[in-house]
Design a protein around this nucleic acid. Sequence first.
DNA 1: ATTAAATTTGACCATATAGTTAATGTTTAA
DNA 2: TTAAACATTAACTATATGGTCAAATTTAAT
Lengths: 203, 203
Amino acid sequence: MKRYNKDTEEKILLVAQRIFREKGFNGTKTQDIADEAGINKALLHYYFTSKSILFERVFLSSIEEVFTALAIHLNSDESIIDKTPKMVSSYLKFVSQNANLFVFVISEAWQNPEFTEKFVKIVLSKINYNQYVTSFKREIEQGIIKDVDPVQFLINLVSLCIFPFLGSPIIQNVFAKVEVDKKEFFLQRKEVITNTMLSMVKK
Amino acid sequence: MKRYNKDTEEKILLVAQRIFREKGFNGTKTQDIADEAGINKALLHYYFTSKSILFERVFLSSIEEVFTALAIHLNSDESIIDKTPKMVSSYLKFVSQNANLFVFVISEAWQNPEFTEKFVKIVLSKINYNQYVTSFKREIEQGIIKDVDPVQFLINLVSLCIFPFLGSPIIQNVFAKVEVDKKEFFLQRKEVITNTMLSMVKK
DNA sequence: ATTAAATTTGACCATATAGTTAATGTTTAA
DNA sequence: TTAAACATTAACTATATGGTCAAATTTAAT
């Protein structure tokens, strides 16, 4: 008949999310979560049973967040050529503001393949990816765009948007010697990616 | 006047490399390294002083390995259009065989900003960045290729080659039929990336 | 063979960490 | 008002972990 204090639960979850995403499962200490949430470590176990279970919650919601962001515009009724620039723009904005979320999800996905499979399937059940493929193929048949594999197109799109931010600690420092204005440089990417992607499908 | 046993040193380093790359710094236990190397934990400290110092060796040599692979063809005398397919081919092969090396390098680069200065030196010793940019720009001036930013071109190239393998534990679950480490997908990807990159520069 | 130096080990130590317990506050509802 | 139910805490436990040290073993030069 436990009701729990929703404020406390929320507070723990938010702090756990921030620290897990920053330091990963193994780098995160339950004591740190408790301290930053302003509670006792025993209370953390009272609410979430164990570090692993708390981590699962954070991992699942992180995967959810990533796929929710990537689903924007994906299934809109617009043509591929119309929605591609919108996807690029919204993906880039999200990734640039949440780079460590992607590092976390990828790193922990390699570490926890069984959860990854389970969680991705849960999240995908809420998003209609088949519709994207179907409408893409219809445009090919109608002769609107070039004959390109929709899956390869999407993988290209997310690769170009996500990778530079994943690799930014390395890329920025390596090119820092040459590229004077880093911010200008990353703004330039939106245009480059849009052009690259459109040239894949435009006849 | 210590000489050390080179076999022992090598053995520890190889095992440490394998485990660090698989589990990261925080997921790796010195006891596991010692056990798998068939030595005592004290001997590990005799050779490498501390876990952190051993980790630094592994991290820096991993950076070196990555950029040695990326340097192949980058500074060859061939034209961009000739060397692009070769770069795609060799990068894809290397990444597909060493995906967890890239996950490790990216994840730990985020986790250990204090190594930045050291790895930048290593990277710049492996790739001749200025020569690549200069020869790229010369081809633009000569009208051989389109006017594209050489850095953006390179970032696109590595993004398309690396990201799908970084994300494979997730991507595989999204497109159930796509098996990222299967040969068919690999070959298809090589063609798609090559075409995408060439369309960026070909007139 | 003797010896000194280099290498390797078993047995430690100190600390950190996830998790537990019993007691104490605090709400809620009769 | 009060007592049961819920929420929170201080103090604790067991184990894992990085690291140390003196002793034992091996190696190489005399």
